[in-house]
Design a binder for these strands. Structure first.
Length: 757
DNA sequence: GCGCAAGACGTTTTT
DNA sequence: CGTCTTGCGC
């Protein structure tokens, strides 16, 4: 009956059949870890473990769904009872159940990144701070980083290292913003993504009875993609596994690509320390079943350049396979055409389907050229990630109505809809209400529902009307399901009407999108797997969708997949194109600018390569449009780092260029620098020239060009002030240097600065 | 408070 | 090149 065991190799079988106690599976790319995890859970259930008592944490909800179905095929419908999902969705569910213990109610809102940033923007304004200094992006990432390390606002303020760091970054008030931000989230009965994990930790820390309940409930805890968990997540798993000690982690340090959001490879090391090295069973899965020898070895040649890694040797018995093709294109658009043509040829020659192909890129913005080229060849494609359906304005607007109906404390939802459609309530009034609520420490609704006490005149009456509208929506919540409430709200709020009256193409599309959202809610309600059909439950599931979770709306499934490399984690395709292999793009400009080593970028490259089963193609363009300007690109250093034996390429060369120089007065703004360079280029060369000024060279990471004690101050992306100072603080001159490469457009936002004595 | 026009500013990667 | 903010007349 357990015939699935026979299809496994020795280490895989050991991992599946491991009994009690901590288990760490180091699984190389393509080594069948999903199978192992699936079968292990099936095996546990067959051996008497109650599915209700298994907690399995995956990286996407889709992965959880697929795994659930695979387990179902082995052991039957019992698989439905396994606790399975992403960290965020599983613990959001638990927080919903236990909300009261930490002062929330179970219908709390989940703030997405936009909500968080908008709240931070308001707070910065209210505190009278400069929003150019305290950029929402920056502040948010600091707060997020702190939360991921389980540092609360008070800890943050009391930590001298963090305070010194903030002071050095000239943002000493971040701690106070953080404190206010947390307070406001709490008052809004809202949690951001990080709070879902942070508050779970708080819940387990402060309420031992609740912790004990879950500790005893979960007899087995399994964590996939362990290399991408952060401290906050790790501690949750550690607490949950503390009683039974049955924790199984699966990961690959070589595929850790989420350090930027707090993932900590050291969790793998901590794991052995925390459970005792002698207690932890370690199993390595090193045989790759996915890719050709060429692909596996090329990937190995990349990752071997990284210093920090666990000892592991990934190999394969698969065929040799074709060499990796390198395609050089003259522009980003040509890159699109060449890839699309190549894809089409391979598809015809080998008789493949569109689903056999994936195009992977470093940033979402790169998809455009490939979309156009594929469309021209009538090749169907789908894009994963990017501006997703749920990020569209009209969708967020309706969702905000739904959120506010469920949770009248939700400040961000309130701000979004209070004047939508227009009812004569301006920013001033909105800010006033938000501040009033914050000062009195009461929910927004408290002010809104008694608005005439606080706001006089026309605005007050308008808000009163709004409050009555929301009250009428609220009444529906108890009796009706999510779909009935939502479709009523769409009509009664006037959102649908406003879009319907907009007869432009975009207006029509927006109207259809809203209908599409209503359809999605209908589907949610009709799905027998969802036991809770309330609006609140729908909103929760929607906010925690991962990019991979979004389904195609049309029924056609044979499509080429376009996505970022990050989104491709865990997936595999027969043929893979890795595009945009250019210095500044991959490895990314940001990584080159910060003095960080490129190890994470290299791991990302490793992940990209190992998605391919049979055939791999890489491409780069010599020029690329960026902010509407043409930029000259150089081939990525990563292309040189691959063992050249596995590549089939046109000889790579740097683009021909000559260098021009111009003096820049210190303290001048970049727009001045820009116009100066523009003038220079035009007057000095008969044809207008391209100025290639890689922004990586903006801050001379190579300090050899600098006299001792000198430094160049600048703004990223070529905006702001250029300033060159010596150790006495005296201004000195700097040179802007740019190359001409015989093209027509000037690219001036990427300036290379050099020092003049 | 609204709407339009000119101007500023920006791109990793994601739950 | 887009998108979002700001400034001004109404």
């Amino acid at each position: 009956m357990i015939d699935y065991l026979s299809s496994l190799n020795e280490p895989q079988r050991l991992a599946v059949m491991h009994g009690d106690g901590p288990l760490m599976i180091i699984a190389g790319a393509g080594s069948g870890k999903t199978r192992v995890l699936t079968y292990r859970i099936a095996y546990l259930i067959e051996n008497g473990v109650d599915p209700f008592r298994i907690l399995s944490l995956t990286f996407t909800n889709k992965a959880a769904g697929e795994m659930r179905h695979r387990i179902e095929r082995v052991i039957g419908t019992e698989a439905r009872n396994i606790w399975m999902g992403t960290f965020h969705s599983v613990f959001a569910k638990i927080l919903r159940i236990e909300a009261k213990a930490i002062g929330y109610t179970s219908n709390f809102s989940i703030y997405d990144t936009d909500d968080s940033k908008s709240l931070i923007r308001s707070i910065v304004r209210e505190m009278g701070l400069d929003d150019k200094v305290y950029r929402a992006n920056n502040v948010f990432s600091r707060i997020s980083g702190a939360k991921n390390r389980l540092i609360g606002p008070d800890d943050y303020l009391n930590n001298p290292i963090i305070q010194a760091d903030d002071a050095a970054a000239r943002m000493p008030e971040v701690g106070r913003i953080y404190k206010q931000y947390s307070l406001r989230c709490f008052q809004a009965n809202a949690m951001d993504f990080d709070d879902l994990l942070f508050n779970t930790n708080v819940l387990f820390r402060d309420h031992l009875d609740i912790l004990h309940k879950y500790q005893h409930k979960f007899q087995h805890v399994l964590v996939d993609e362990f290399q991408d968990t952060n401290v906050s997540q790790y501690l949750i798993t550690r607490k949950l596994a503390a009683v039974h000690q049955n924790i199984c982690i699966v990961g690959d340090d070589a595929q850790s690509i989420y350090a930027f959001r707090g993932a900590n490879i050291e969790n793998i090391l901590n794991f052995q320390r925390d459970y005792g090295k002698e207690n932890v069973k370690v199993i390595k899965l090193e045989q790759n079943y996915r890719s050709t020898k060429t692909i596996v070895q090329a990937a190995n040649s990349i990752i071997s350049r990284n210093r920090s890694q666990l000892e592991k040797h990934v190999f394969t018995d698969n065929e040799e396979g074709p060499l990796i093709d390198i395609i050089k294109a003259s522009s980003d658009n040509e890159e699109g055409r060449l890839i699309a043509t190549s894809l089409f040829e391979i598809k015809m020659q080998e008789g493949l389907k569109n689903t056999d192909f994936a195009i992977l890129y470093r940033t979402n913005a790169q998809s455009r050229a490939f979309e156009e080229a594929l469309r021209k060849l009538s090749i169907k494609y789908r894009i994963i990630g990017g501006t997703s359906f749920y990020q569209r304005k009209e969708i967020k607007d309706l969702l905000a109505y739904l959120r506010f109906t469920v949770n009248q404390s939700d400040e961000e939802a309130f701000k979004r809809i209070i004047n939508l459609p227009k009812r004569g309530i301006g920013d001033t009034t909105v800010a006033k209400i938000a501040v009033l609520a914050a000062e009195k420490q009461v929910p927004i609704w408290e002010i809104v529902s008694n608005v005439t006490k606080h706001v006089a005149g026309r605005a007050g009456i308008a808000i009163e009307g709004f409050a009555d509208l929301i009250k009428s929506f609220k009444l529906m919540l108890e009796k009706k399901d999510a779909y009935d409430v939502a479709s009523h709200i769409a009509k009664a709020s006037g959102i649908l009407k406003e879009l319907y009256e907009d007869k432009t193409v975009e207006g029509l599309a927006r109207y259809e999108n809203v209908q599409e959202l209503l359809n999605a809610i209908k589907e949610f309600v009709d799905n027998p797997e969802n036991d809770d059909k309330s609006l609140s439950s729908f909103l929760q599931s929607v906010s925690l969708l991962t990019t991979a979770d979004e389904d195609d709306k049309d029924g056609d499934n044979d499509k080429v997949t376009l996505m970022t490399i990050h989104a491709a984690k865990g997936l595999e395709f027969r043929n893979v194109f890795i595009v945009g292999m250019e210095e500044d793009l991959f490895p990314s400009q940001m990584m080159l600018e910060s003095r960080a080593d490129l190890e994470e970028e290299r791991r990302l490259f490793y992940v990209a390569i190992t998605r391919a089963e049979k055939r791999l193609t890489m491409s780069y363009a010599e020029t690329r449009y960026h902010y509407g300007r043409l930029k000259v690109c150089e081939p990525s250093r990563f292309l040189m780092e691959v063992d050249q034996r596995y590549l089939k390429m046109a000889r790579m060369r740097m683009s021909d260029s000559t260098t021009q120089e111009r003096e820049v007065p210190s303290g001048g703004s970049m727009s001045f620098v820009r116009s100066l360079a523009q003038k220079t280029a035009k007057s000095q060369s008969p044809q207008p020239a391209v100025a290639h000024i890689p922004s990586a060279d903006f801050a001379p990471s190579d300090t050899s060009g600098l006299a001792p004690g000198m430094r160049v101050e600048h703004m990223k992306f070529g905006f702001g002030t250029v300033k060159l100072v010596d150790q006495n603080g005296t201004d000195r001159k700097a040179i802007i240097q740019f190359e001409t490469a015989g093209e027509k457009t000037l690219l001036l936002s990427f300036a290379k600065l050099r020092i003049v004595e």
